[in-house]
Design a protein around this nucleic acid. Sequence first.
DNA 1: CTATTGACCTTCT
DNA 2: GAGAAGGCCAATA
Length: 110
Amino acid sequence: MKNSFGNDFYEAVFTIVRLIPEGKVSTYGDIARFLGIGSSARMVGWALNSVVDREDVPCHRVVNRNGELSGAMHFATPTLMKELLLKENISFIGNAVNLSEHRWVIELDV
DNA sequence: CTATTGACCTTCT
DNA sequence: GAGAAGGCCAATA
């Protein structure tokens, strides 16, 4: 079946991450769920791993359910992710993002 | 080809 | 409320 993303789960993730507005962040689970949880949130991270070199996809705007920068270690530098988020005026709670203020909800209802 | 790990989340005990 | 286990799909060894 040719779902909107059913063809390429990866492209779907890239597309959504690319649509993340500035100063907002999304979570792996939310994205995976939006796609239909057909592959688990894990695949989302793997997909992003292929995009770390691509500046078209702000992987730094994607964090885990806890708001922690889980994939920060996979970036060029372990602090690059935090730095980028800080430049976006994103609030930080210790080592995690303030999801209460920057949790971007996918346009499911909007 | 089989086994293990991996940027995770949900649910049961 | 906290902790542990399972599940999902894919890639790498």
